[in-house]
Design a protein around this nucleic acid. Structure first.
Lengths: 331, 331
DNA sequence: CGCCGTAATGTTAGCGCTTTCAGTAACACC
DNA sequence: GGTGTTACTGAAAGCGCTAACATTACGGCG
């Protein structure tokens, strides 16, 4: 920066101003400085800048895994808002471990981000303390059933599952199975399971424990649980899977076994991934605002960084039941 | 940090040492300092630390989009190596724009990352200059057909496509269509197309331009190109899609239209996404080391950061033709 | 005509750490 | 007992910027 200043015949603070507050510099000076920046190939040092100004242009984001496209969509929404605003993304993957989340929260906060996005409302006490102590805007995502540390944006996993069970029941099913995602360190999965259980009781449906299982996130696991469940409860009428990947894995298994969907068995998923609309039959599922979660989270953070108050602190973006051909049509 | 030092009855430099070089501090002191760190809830300021030490624990990564799972897998491999080594990920999505890539390279370099991962060997001159000028380790990924700025890890898209066409031809197809991904700002797609063209000529197959189309990345586009191609060239025997998503979109369209795969038409994809093995019939495709690309890229960067020389600078991880049921079986 | 507001630029200090060099103490060795 | 060696701790300087205040020039205004 010293070099640039010398070449342009100004002091270094003027160079700094040209780069950060161009309107506070005379146009002729600005041009001279910009030319000098080009000529020297100067790349500003944001590390030094951040230290001096005590703020960074970095937003931290913590997701369980970026390998699951639903989180990739949220990150996508986040960057689509952040990038034009001049912010960059510091990404961490917790691998569904609250221990690892705490560690990453510490590591990310050490970078003094301007804001932070987390997934879920559930945290380890250590991480929670860190989140509470810091004064940057924090948005927890993918869940609105609980108390956020600061702000939250998402939808009710509980209500979404309850609504899907109600839809299946309305189409005539009384024996509805549920395949949950692992609920440890995953409040979204836990609430989906609770939503199912609540609905089954509420509607007086079959509550046999054999209609409930857990599966890791994979096509294969969905197929396996399907096979197990129809072996133990051949009379099951519909199986609701906690995510589309499981459901589609099961759907493919039905294709292979000649089980007719939805005539012999109805299948429903959760997430409405792009694939859900493409498979044959199309998958009935819950559409959730994955991309918008990221977008709105970014907006909330930015608004706070601009000094505005953000109300409400919990933003429920809702969900939508999408009925396709994998469940019986309405009459 | 001042507070911690006072509480522990040491100077601030000792606190710094406890945090960064714990082995250079007496155990009793270390314990006292750690207790003080806990008590005060001190979170080190990496920004200041980085400025003073002139190095960060951040690695930049540029991908076209994180929404495509193949890049998510590469990022996954990257973080799996980087995180245990104490590095964090600064992620940028270029949206397949070289202009945007240049901008992001500048923004990321301003953060003074310890290393940088880019996707592809193709860059705009402005971004290329930045990459060349900087002295941090840089790995270009997903392509080894060309000259890297620094290091590269990936496979030959050209040879992979050539090999798939040869496989299809070996199974009897003479009229093989190709659906390319958009080739602008995407050297990988471009080389896949060139590999197809080369193979078709080399093997004396049908070179009709109507057997060649382009499609954006979606199931839907794959289905559309399929429909168009069989309308214009009803005698096409096999269609090779530049990625699995296109191929699977086409496969689903065949299911809907009652086109038997592979009896009426063979279908092949590229990438071997998890879904490719699940669909019915299973998709013949090219398996590529998506995850390992990220892993090896991280390893190369880390080795360089430890002062080692890295040879070779271009690491070809190869590919593998995976024949499933969407193409005719061997005899 | 002096005063004051405004625009443009510069001076000074310091952000919170780490590097470098120095210093102290304890111990072994010839 | 002087010297070297190892282990530990500290003082001073400064990383490359920006915030806050200072300065200069200029023109409008009572």
């Amino acid at each position: 920066m010293e070099d640039v200043a010398r070449l342009a015949g100004v002091s270094s603070i003027t160079v700094s101003r040209v780069l950060n507050h161009p309107d506070k510099v005379a146009e002729s000076t600005r041009e001279r400085v910009m030319a000098a920046v080009e000529a020297t190939g100067y790349i500003p040092n944001s590390v030094a800048g951040s230290l001096a100004s005590r703020r960074t242009r970095v937003i931290g984001a913590l997701v369980p895994t970026i390998t699951n496209s639903i989180f990739a969509d949220t990150i996508d929404g986040l960057t689509d808002v952040l990038t034009p605003a001049g912010y960059q993304l510091l990404l961490g993957a917790t691998g569904y471990s609250l221990r690892e989340e705490s560690r990453l929260v510490g590591a990310i906060l050490a970078q003094r981000p301007a804001g932070l996005l987390a997934t879920g409302l559930q945290h380890e006490s250590q991480g929670l303390t860190l989140l509470r102590t810091t004064d940057i805007p924090i948005v927890e995502t993918w869940n609105v059933d609980g108390d956020p540390v600061d702000m939250a944006v998402g939808f009710s996993n509980f209500e979404a599952c309850r609504a899907m069970v109600a839809t299946l029941a309305r189409r005539g099913a009384r024996r509805i199975g549920f395949v949950s995602a692992p609920t440890t360190a995953n409040d979204r999965a836990e609430q989906r399971l609770r939503g199912y259980r609540h609905a089954v009781r509420e509607l007086g449906l079959d509550t046999d424990a054999r209609l409930e299982r857990e599966a890791k996130f994979s096509f294969h696991a969905g197929a396996e649980r399907l096979v197990e469940m129809i072996a133990e409860r051949p009379d099951v009428e519909a199986i609701f899977f906690a995510n589309d990947i499981l459901a589609i894995g099961a759907l493919f298994e039905c294709q292979r076994r000649g089980i007719r969907v939805p005539e012999d068995l109805a299948i429903a998923g959760f997430d409405d991934v792009e694939l859900a609309a493409q498979v044959n039959p199309g998958l009935t599922t819950v559409r959730i605002p994955r991309y918008r979660i990221g977008r709105e989270a970014a907006r909330m953070i930015l608004r706070r960084l601009e000094g505005e108050r953000v109300e409400p602190r919990v933003l429920d973006l809702g969900f939508e039941i999408v009925e396709r051909q994998s469940t019986p049509a309405g009459t």
